[in-house]
Simulated scan of single mutants.
Amino acid sequence: MATSIKDVAREAGVSIATVSRVLNDIDVVNEDTKKKVLDAIKELGYRPNIVARSLKTQRTKTIGILLPDISNQFYPEIVRGAEDVSNIYDYNIILCNSDLDIEKEKEYLRVLKEKMVDGVIYMSSSLRDEILELINELDLKTVLVETRDKDGVLPSVTIDNIKGSYDSTNLLIKKGIKDIAFIGTKKDNMNAWGDRYVGYEKAMNEAGIKIDSELVYLDSIKVKSGYEGIQHFLGLNKKFKGVVCASDDIAMGAINALRDNNMEIPKDVSVVGFNDNFAASIFYPKITTVSQPTYDMGSVAMRMLIKLLNKKELDEPNYVLEHELIERESTI
C-alpha cells in the first residue's frame, strides 16, 4: 500500500496540516519541525499526489522549456543548466522541440498551458509579435533565453550577439582580410541570429569596407546553409578571403564546401563560427568561434523563473552574460 500523508504525520509526530504546510513550502513551520517532516518523507518514501496538490495550490511544480532545434549542439547545454537548477528546487521539466516551426511553437505553448505548467523558458527562431501576444493571452510566466522581446517586457538571459559578431568580423579585418562573406539569417529576425548579421554589418561599416550583397547568404543556422552558402558564392565567381558564420554548424558546412572545392582553410579562406559547440574544438581544422556560457544561460534563466513564480523581485530583469572570442586553426 502506498504511503499516505497520514503516515508521514504519524511518523513525524505532527498534524496532517503541518505536513501539508511543509509540502507547500509555507513559512509558518519552524525549522526543527520541518526537518522532522522531511526526514519522515524520506524514510517512508512518500510521494505527494501531484494532481491533487496542483488542484489545491494551482501549481504543478512543472516548467516547460521550448527550444527551436534539439539537434543543434548549442541547446542541450542550456537545458542541462536549467534542469540542474530545477532539480534543486524540486521542479519537473517538459521539453518541447519546435523544429524551427512557428506553428509548432504556438501549439506547444497552448499544450504547456493545458498541462498547467507554472512557467516557461523560451528559446526560439522567431519571437514574432504573434508569439508574444499568445504568451500574454495564455498568461504564461516566461523567461527568454538567447533573445529579447523588442519592448524588453519579458525577463531574458542573453549575450551581446551584435558585439560577438562584431568581434569575430573585426578579428578578420585586423588580419588584413577585407573580402569577407557572411552566412546566417536575416537581420530583421527578432533574435540572436539576426543580431549576428547586424554585428557583421557594423564592423564592416566602421572599417570603411563596402559590403558586397552577393557575399551575403541568409537562410538558416544549419550545416547545409554553410555548405550551400559557399557553393552560392563560388557559383557567382565571387572572390573572398574570410567567412563570418552565425553558428558553428554553418562554419562546419562552409569548411566542408571549401574543401570540396579544393580550397585550404585558413590558407585560402579564414572561417569564424559562433557558439563554441563541442564539435568546434574537435572539427578539422578546429574552429575559431565566439563562445557563449550556455550552461550559465540555462541556470540563470531557471533561477529567474523560479523567483518570478515565488513572487520575488528579480535582481536584474535582462541579464547579458559575457562572451569570449576563441582563436583556433580556422583563421590565419
Rank of each mutant, 00 (worst) to 15 (best):
M1G: 15
A2G: 07
K6N: 14
V8Q: 01
R10Y: 02
E11L: 10
R21M: 14
L23S: 10
D25G: 04
I26F: 11
N30H: 14
I41G: 06
L44G: 14
L44E: 14
Y46F: 15
P48Q: 12
R53H: 03
L55G: 10
L55P: 04
T57F: 08
R59L: 06
T62N: 15
T62Y: 05
S71E: 15
N72G: 08
Q73N: 12
Y75S: 05
E77T: 13
V79L: 13
R80I: 13
I93H: 05
I94V: 11
I94A: 07
S98V: 09
D99K: 14
L100M: 13
D101N: 15
D101K: 08
Y108E: 01
V111K: 12
K115M: 14
G119L: 12
I121P: 10
S125C: 05
L127T: 03
I131C: 04
L132R: 04
E137A: 08
L138W: 00
D139K: 04
V145F: 11
E146K: 04
R148S: 09
S156E: 06
T158A: 07
I159D: 11
N161F: 00
S168V: 15
L171P: 04
D179C: 00
G184K: 04
K186G: 12
D188M: 08
N189K: 13
W193M: 09
D195L: 02
L215D: 00
D219Y: 03
D219L: 07
D219R: 10
K224A: 14
G226K: 03
Y227I: 08
G229M: 10
I230L: 13
F233R: 02
L236V: 01
K239F: 09
F240M: 03
G242W: 11
A246N: 01
I255Y: 06
I255L: 11
A257N: 04
N261A: 12
V272H: 02
F274A: 10
D276P: 01
F278W: 14
K286T: 07
I287C: 06
Q292H: 12
P293Y: 11
D296S: 11
M297D: 03
S299Q: 00
S299G: 02
L305C: 09
N310G: 02
E313K: 11
E316F: 00
P317K: 08
Y319V: 10
V320T: 15
E322G: 06
E324A: 01
E329N: 10
T331F: 09
T331G: 06
